[in-house]
């Protein structure tokens, strides 16, 4: 598997660590309450198609990356830096 790091280009998956759903970008407000945090920390969608997810270029530039990847075929539909994804979302 190869991942296109926005900084470093096409790299082998062994340089990366997977962290799960990109939902983690959206941390609830501090006063959102337990239920909101339970949802944020634990509950997941698991789509059989494109999954928006976080990868960490741990043994590269150490960027957190948001990727769109198909969970059934492993094909990537795109990657961007998490900090850009987060800023774009606002």
């Amino acid at each position: 598997m190869r991942i296109n790091c926005p900084n470093c280009g096409d790299r082998d998956v062994r340089e990366f660590h997977y962290r799960g759903s990109a939902k983690l970008l959206n941390r609830p407000a501090p006063d959102a309450g337990e239920a909101a945090f339970v949802d944020y920390v634990y509950l997941r969608e698991n789509p059989a198609g494109l999954n928006r997810e976080l990868w960490f270029h741990e043994m590269g530039c150490r960027s957190w990356i948001v990727a769109q990847r198909n969970m059934s075929t492993h094909e990537f539909a795109g990657t961007e830096l998490a900090r850009n994804a987060k800023r774009g979302a606002k």
């Binding site: 660590h17 962290r19 983690l24 970008l25 941390r27 976080l54 960490f56 741990e58 150490r62 960027s63 957190w64 830096l81 998490a82 900090r83 987060k86 800023r87």
Partner: peptide, 14 residues
């Protein structure tokens, strides 16, 4: 270290 980078890039890039 990874946690801090998560915080600065994913949670609070601002």
């Amino acid at each position: 270290m990874t946690h801090l980078e998560f915080c600065t890039q994913v949670l609070w890039p601002e």
